[in-house]
Amino acid sequence: MSLDLLVSHYNYWVVIFLMMVGFYILISRGNLVKKVVGLNVFQTSVFMLYISMGKVSGGTPPILVYGETDVLYSNPLPHVLILTAIVVGIATTSVGLALAVRIKEAYGTIEEDEINAIEARTEATE
């Protein structure tokens, strides 16, 4: 793999790095709030993927320039899609955090291993 390829595709490397960081937090952390944060980072990396791929080299922001016909615009569609996906991401985060609050009320903890221990104990008494 040449250095050129590495540099010219740097946006994808950023995306992959963020995605793996988010995924790692999601899997390795036992704290439910940290899991939600990891999920958020994971989703944000996909937003970056979409937004960076809508960029046209030398293109202006997609705002109509009056009187000029040969303006090169960046592709606005991925941006619009990601606006929707950001809303979805916020909704997911808020549902996740709301569940974490209710789990805290019901179990007194948001640490996954402690919750598992409590559940194992209640299952044994059933």
């Binding site: 999601l26 899991k35 559940e119």
Partner: peptide, 15 residues
């Protein structure tokens, strides 16, 4: 446990 089940589904479903 409905809460923890929903949370786990949320994580896996969102992924």
């Amino acid at each position: 446990r409905a809460l923890t089940s929903a949370f786990r589904y949320l994580i896996m479903g969102s992924v």
